[in-house]
C-alpha cells in the first residue's frame, strides 16, 4: 500500500509539473462555459441572420431558450472532453516504456501490479474530478441563467457519461499493457468503441451496448426510463473491471 501511495504521488507530481492537469482543467472549464453560452447566443445570432433572410422572403422563428438547450450542448461537448482526456492520458504507460523510466523503479522491487493500479487510479480520479467539475459548473450556470428543473434525470445522465469515460480509460490501460506505442493504444481503444457503436445499430442489442451511454437525450427529456440504461451501465462497469483484471497478468509478463 505504501508503494502504491508513493507511486501515485509521483504520478500526480508529474501531472502538475508537466502542466497536464492545468491543460485538462482549462479545456473542461472552457467546454463548461461554452454550453450555456452557445445555448444563450445561438438564438441571438439566428435572429440577426433572420432579419436579412426575411428580406429574401424566408422567415425564421426562434423558439424560447431554456436550460434544456444548454444541457444538450453539455452532452454534445462531452465527447470532445473525453477525446482530449484520452489523447493526453493515453501515453501514461507507453511514455515510460519508450523512455525506460520504469526499469529503475521495477528493479527496486516495485511490484508491477502496483504500477498498473496506481496509473489506473490516477486516470480514474482525474477523469472523475474533471468530469464532475464540468458537470457542476454547467449545472451552476444553468441554474443561475435559467432553471434546471426542466431537465429530467440530470445526475443519472451525467453518471452514464462518466461511466462510459471510465470504461474507455480502463480499455486504454488494457491496450497500454499489450502495446508498446501510443498509437496502438488509441487505435485499440477507438476500435472497441467503433465496434460497440456498430453492434449498437442492431435493434434489441442496442440497449446492452455501452455506446448507449453516450446518447442520453431521451433521459433528460424523460422519454426513457432510467431502468432502460441500467444494463448498458452495468456492462460498461463489467468491461472496466475486466479490462483492469486482465491487464495485471499481461503486464506481469511484459518485457520492459
Amino acid at each position: 500500500m505504501k508503494s502504491f501511495i508513493n507511486f501515485t504521488k509521483k504520478e500526480y507530481m508529474e501531472h502538475f509539473r508537466c502542466a497536464k492537469i492545468f491543460i485538462l482543467t482549462g479545456v473542461f472549464i472552457l467546454l463548461a462555459v461554452m454550453s450555456p453560452l452557445v445555448a444563450k447566443f445561438t438564438p441571438v445570432i439566428i435572429e440577426m441572420l433572420s432579419e436579412s433572410m426575411s428580406q429574401g422572403g424566408m422567415e425564421i422563428t426562434v423558439s424560447e431558450v431554456s436550460a434544456m438547450d444548454s444541457w444538450m450542448q453539455f452532452f454534445k461537448n462531452a465527447p470532445i472532453a473525453l477525446i482530449v482526456f484520452v489523447l493526453l492520458e493515453s501515453n501514461i504507460f507507453t511514455k515510460e516504456y519508450q523512455k525506460g523510466t520504469l526499469v529503475l523503479a521495477l528493479t527496486k522491487g516495485l511490484k508491477r501490479h502496483t504500477v498498473l493500479l496506481s496509473k489506473a487510479f490516477v486516470m480514474i480520479t482525474l477523469w472523475t474530478a474533471e468530469f464532475f467539475m464540468y458537470y457542476g459548473l454547467v449545472y451552476l450556470m444553468n441554474d443561475i441563467i435559467w432553471d434546471n428543473s426542466v431537465a429530467e434525470n440530470l445526475t443519472f445522465s451525467a453518471v452514464c457519461w462518466w461511466a462510459f469515460g471510465l470504461m474507455i480509460l480502463c480499455l486504454c490501460v488494457l491496450f497500454s499493457v499489450i502495446a508498446k506505442t501510443n498509437i496502438v493504444v488509441l487505435a485499440g481503444t477507438g476500435g472497441v468503441v467503433f465496434a460497440s457503436y456498430l453492434v449498437g445499430m442492431l435493434p434489441k442489442i442496442d440497449r446492452f451496448m455501452p455506446t448507449l451511454l453516450m446518447n442520453v437525450n431521451s433521459l433528460i427529456y424523460a422519454l426513457e426510463e432510467v431502468s432502460y440504461y441500467v444494463p448498458a451501465l452495468l456492462i460498461a462497469g463489467g468491461i472496466s473491471v475486466l479490462s483492469l483484471v486482465l491487464s495485471i497478468p499481461i503486464f506481469n509478463k511484459k518485457h520492459i
Binding site: 505504501k2 525506460g100 526499469v103 529503475l104 523503479a105
Partner: peptide, 29 residues
C-alpha cells in the same frame, strides 16, 4: 538485494536529484 545502473539510465526528468532518491527510497520501503 540488487542495485542496478542501466547503460543509459532514464529518470523522471521533472524531479531533481534528491526528489528522485526520495521517490526511490519510498518505493523500496
Amino acid at each position: 538485494y540488487i542495485g542496478y545502473l542501466p547503460d543509459v539510465p532514464e529518470y523522471y526528468s521533472f524531479m531533481n536529484a534528491s526528489e528522485y532518491l526520495r521517490f526511490c527510497g519510498d518505493i523500496t520501503g
